[in-house]
Design a protein around this nucleic acid. Sequence first.
DNA 1: TTGTACGCGTTATCAT
DNA 2: ATGATAACGCGTACAA
Lengths: 365, 365
Amino acid sequence: MGTRATIADVARKAGVSPSTASVVFSGKTPVSDATRRKVEDAAAELGYTGPDPRAASLRTGRSGIVGVVFEEHLGAAFLDPVKTLMMDGLADAVSPLGAGLLLLRDHEPSGRGATLTTAPIDAAVLVGCSGRLRESLDAVLGRGIPVVVMEGDAGADVPRIDLDNVEAQRQAASHVRTLGHSAVVILTLPHRADGPAGWVEGAADDEITVDVTRDRLRGAREIYPSAPVYAAAASSIDEGVAAGRAILADPAARPTAVIAQSDLLAVGVIRAAEEAGLRVPEDLSVTGFDGIEIDGLAPYELTTLVQPAADKGRAAGVAVAAMLEGREAASIRFTCVFREGNTTAAAPVETGLAASGAARLSPTP
Amino acid sequence: MGTRATIADVARKAGVSPSTASVVFSGKTPVSDATRRKVEDAAAELGYTGPDPRAASLRTGRSGIVGVVFEEHLGAAFLDPVKTLMMDGLADAVSPLGAGLLLLRDHEPSGRGATLTTAPIDAAVLVGCSGRLRESLDAVLGRGIPVVVMEGDAGADVPRIDLDNVEAQRQAASHVRTLGHSAVVILTLPHRADGPAGWVEGAADDEITVDVTRDRLRGAREIYPSAPVYAAAASSIDEGVAAGRAILADPAARPTAVIAQSDLLAVGVIRAAEEAGLRVPEDLSVTGFDGIEIDGLAPYELTTLVQPAADKGRAAGVAVAAMLEGREAASIRFTCVFREGNTTAAAPVETGLAASGAARLSPTP
DNA sequence: TTGTACGCGTTATCAT
DNA sequence: ATGATAACGCGTACAA
């Protein structure tokens, strides 16, 4: 009662050797029915429910656990629709593998507990990664654990699942330009983990540690090289509203279009525009990125880039499965599909106001 | 190169004993700076990145992992808004504990891999549980692992986090009755895992293995004891549409109100009603359950019961933390708040049609 | 402060 | 088909 029964206890009670008892549970070797019965009965009597996972794992070197590493508050994984879809696909793909998904943060604040370095994982998926990516990556690679990186550059040898962010965002910007907009603001995702919101003066690419942010910005800049850049603190409607208010604050310096790096941010901007008495798309065009379903957005239908989020997750799972079987996993780059909604329209006829606004908005003072 | 360095290798290289090296990494005992340096240098040279989690876990008996067990496809955990919120709260609450969340299914189809019985977890949270609950529960209790059950009856001794489902659903039904409805259909969640959709004839309580379904139905029946019952196959908008079509199929037997056991189902019913040319709430009143945000529902605002999903998750996390510290954890029952939207209205004036419909709808043929 | 010795519970290997 | 043996890699009394 004080201590749990072990397989040795069961074996003794059943009158067989520990290895035989072990084999009864693992099924790795044929066992006579009589022996099996003896062992099972003994186990039942002792309340033995099977091998201790810890010991088995130590011995076999496998835990059946795939770690999924987020750089942010874990809850975000459940609240961000893109991540949610991605996880759905991932769960799907590792399911036949029989593996469980262990949700981890890259940098666990409290000392003890499971972190990337202390969790018994067979493989890892690094997602939404940024500056801390290298750190996490080294930890995993150092342990010789197969790893897949989503949306981040991990160097050679590490399979990568990502999007054609540059090209996709270029498409959206191009669409906006075709509509005749010149006073454009680019609303980006955070530039680095925990980055504050605000205007970014002459944002140099190498100051942006979040790969997604950098690439999408790069794409937009191929069309609008000198458009002002406002960085949001996170990808959420609330942050989008805050950013929208800041961007639309000065009536004399209002853009006629906002290129947002996520749908949630775009929705926030639309709300902010409504607040400010602007009509979308007549007074302000807004583009998003992700192509998620957004509740309560009617009658708007966002002009955006639809990314195959679930497929991305599934691909990561497939890659993990391959690596666990000792095969090589290939990097995959998914393609976004441009979808024109009703949140973009031709630029308003150029008034002195808009013209001066455009001028004021140039990044160089 | 062939095999990984162990702490013994590091100790040897550093010229200290294994236990000293161990202490350097765990920090459980003061170590002289000189020794620490020696060990750290040796570790760096050997590419040793810290204790093997498997071995450490076997030794200490702790893994820093909390298992979260779903009865369904894991992806569902990420697509169902209620579960999503719940997980957010749970992640929140176990975070200070430094524990990772391991997502598991109650019954893993493929043989190998992490299951409830083979995963190195310190504690378990059973969620959305039904008939298989007992099975999962036995597995966990047998291993002496602390467990918390969400939305399910696990018997005494097992802390339970749930809702006042009966009372809450009674409130909604009562509201519907106050509006004068007599031709009412109750649209329930599945009656058992993988239960098929369809009309349920004289559903006896004890045939319903899903606790949530049973309790909410019980609440509705306190007001409408003989209302026909239609069971959905899952909680989703799509299933709601399918159920709605079936419920509204016969114009002569149409109800004037549908009491749905989840918001998603309710939304589906509304869509089906629109399809059928019915106006909500003028021709058909619909109530939901959960109080989640639903995109694209405007101009409707669901009459529903708002449940504190995130708080539920948080409570589970707190309970787990308590049990891991050897304290007792209390069961908690959360209260839903009735919220009247614009999807319910007074029953249409009784026509011969509606009257006969009500008659036809009585469960006894 | 450091080292010695042992066991955590299991499973792979090999021999029988 | 079954059994003996030897790790797996670590943490922690306890002694020095």
